[in-house]
Amino acid sequence: MIPVGEVIGTWIAVGLTLMMFSFIYKDNPAFKFGEHLYLGISVGYYVNIQYWSTIYPLVFQQMQQNHNYWVLIPTLLGIFILLRIIPSLSWLSRMSFALYIGGFAGYSLPLIVHSLLLPQLSQTLQPYGGGVGPVINQIIILLAVFSTLIYFFFSLEHRKTVGVISRVGIVFIMVSFGASFGYTVMARISLLIGRFQFIIDSFRGQ
């Protein structure tokens, strides 16, 4: 036997799904209702997540069970952010932002080099060999990387030679975007099919 809660829940879910879908037609009261409901629910969810998975275990439990009072420092900094509401004390929030953003800048700098910049550079450095086809491709890649980089030169005026090269760069960029676009279009269609499947299955009582 299916529990009552699940039956009611599924009907509500189907109703809400249809409300949100009505957005495709045009803005209407059903969508407005769904949108505002979704907004309230999601903010409630977000606040609960922040409390139960961050503040409660990392602050309250740490102090009660492990007697770790170091967490009072970030707690204080968190309260500083709240002081933005009081204009005369809002400068205190700068301490929190400085630690948060300053620390993150230092944290991400070597990671950008390690996992983003160097791999891209390393992949470009390939041997020019393996037959006529691969060599031609390799030269095209070299051309594309160079012309795209030239396009992003901001201190050079895009005239004469630089202008021509950056035009080539924009050609490569557009072909690249076209390929990504076509690729994603096909992937997204399957998502829609999945959602229709849900509605149809629910009506058939499966």
Partner: peptide, 18 residues
């Protein structure tokens, strides 16, 4: 298309972004 112009142009864009 995916492996040659797409990959290469993306590389150019991303190197600048990084």
């Amino acid at each position: 298309l995916l492996n040659v112009p797409n990959a290469a142009a993306k590389r150019g864009i991303l190197l600048g972004v990084y």
